[in-house]
Amino acid sequence: MDRSQRGAALITVLMIVAIVVVIAVNMTGRLQLQLQRQQNLQQQQQAFWYAMGAEHFARVLLSRSLSGQETVNLEQDWAQSGASFVVTDGNIAGEITDLQACFNLNALQQPGQRGTSGRIEQTAAQRSFIRLLELAATDLSMPAEYLMARVHDWLDEDSLLSTAGSAEEDDYAALQFPYYTANSLMVSVSELRQMLDITPADLQMLLPYVCVLPENTQYQLNINTLTEDTAILLAALVPQLTEADAIDMIAERPENGFNSIDELLALPQLAGIEMADDVKALLTVKSSYFQLLATTSYLESGFVLTSIFRVDDENTVRVLARRFGGQG
């Protein structure tokens, strides 16, 4: 073999070695990526199971806290905020809130009754929602009556406009990116984002005071789990009550809450105010619906779980809904 042939053979061998090295590096990189992906999945799965453990703990805590109790109040164990537990290579934190200390948007599905004059009269929940908007959302991008009507038409089963300023399927179908109204109960507060002309600013004003109870059209406000920040809900329900007086009433509430609605009605802030029966019917000292927001971590992975519970008359706690990835 002459010198030129030996040089060609050497070049060929070097090319083959170079190709093998490139392939080996590529395979090694893919293997490392697969290993990292598998590790991330394992960590995420462990964080998920930590969250499910938090949910189970919350169910047990609710059941024990409410067993034999005639009222639901913020001095009970379930209401203690800031709970955090260190676990192997991670952390579990959770907070339980009462979903009957906020306005259930699904209650707006109920139609008003026809009055003696022949006109449809708004329900107590609808009137309360409008007043809540007037008190808490003074910069709302539309009249409060319009927003109430749009939520109602989003929830009701027909495709007919309920009143002026409302919006139904035809209005949504005419948008640049058309879609239809749900025509069913809401499952998340985030559905407000889909309603016609609601702005992000509108949503931010509403979020501290509204919630959604799955498959439930009732509005029951627990006066024992309101805080001074949410006392505005009481002022919205009783039109003659000012927000300042509502805050005072919550501040003066007994440590373990009111034992009955009559104790609330006896407060001086309500002296001289004649509360309608349909308004009184919306006040309660007990709650059946609660929400857990659990945040967990494991090594470099995190997980957020939102669970909604219902406590029945036998004190059995049932999970109604779960949402992964936080609130919204």
Rank of each mutant, 00 (worst) to 15 (best):
S128Y: 01
Q194L: 09
N216H: 06
R6Y: 06
Q240N: 13
T28V: 08
G165H: 12
T138W: 00
A281Y: 10
H56T: 09
E215I: 04
S287V: 07
S162G: 15
V279A: 01
E255F: 01
A83D: 02
L66S: 07
A79G: 01
P200G: 02
F177R: 14
E75T: 13
V311A: 07
G118D: 10
A201D: 15
V279W: 00
L221V: 09
G118I: 13
A231M: 06
Q34V: 03
E168M: 13
L14P: 05
A54F: 00
D312P: 07
I16W: 15
Q218C: 04
F103H: 06
L233E: 07
R253L: 01
A83N: 02
S159P: 10
N26H: 13
R318V: 02
A18D: 05
I130D: 04
L35W: 08
E228S: 13
Q240W: 06
L61K: 05
D245Q: 15
A124D: 04
S141R: 04
E134S: 14
A174T: 05
S287C: 09
L74S: 03
A236M: 04
I261L: 12
A54S: 07
L41K: 08
S141W: 03
Q113V: 11
A244M: 10
P200R: 00
N104I: 10
E121M: 12
G272Q: 01
F258N: 03
M275L: 14
R318S: 04
G29N: 14
D89R: 05
L292K: 11
A83H: 02
M1V: 09
N183F: 00
I273L: 06
V22E: 04
A201R: 12
Y50C: 02
E300V: 07
E263K: 10
L221C: 03
A231D: 05
Q109P: 03
G115P: 08
L282K: 11
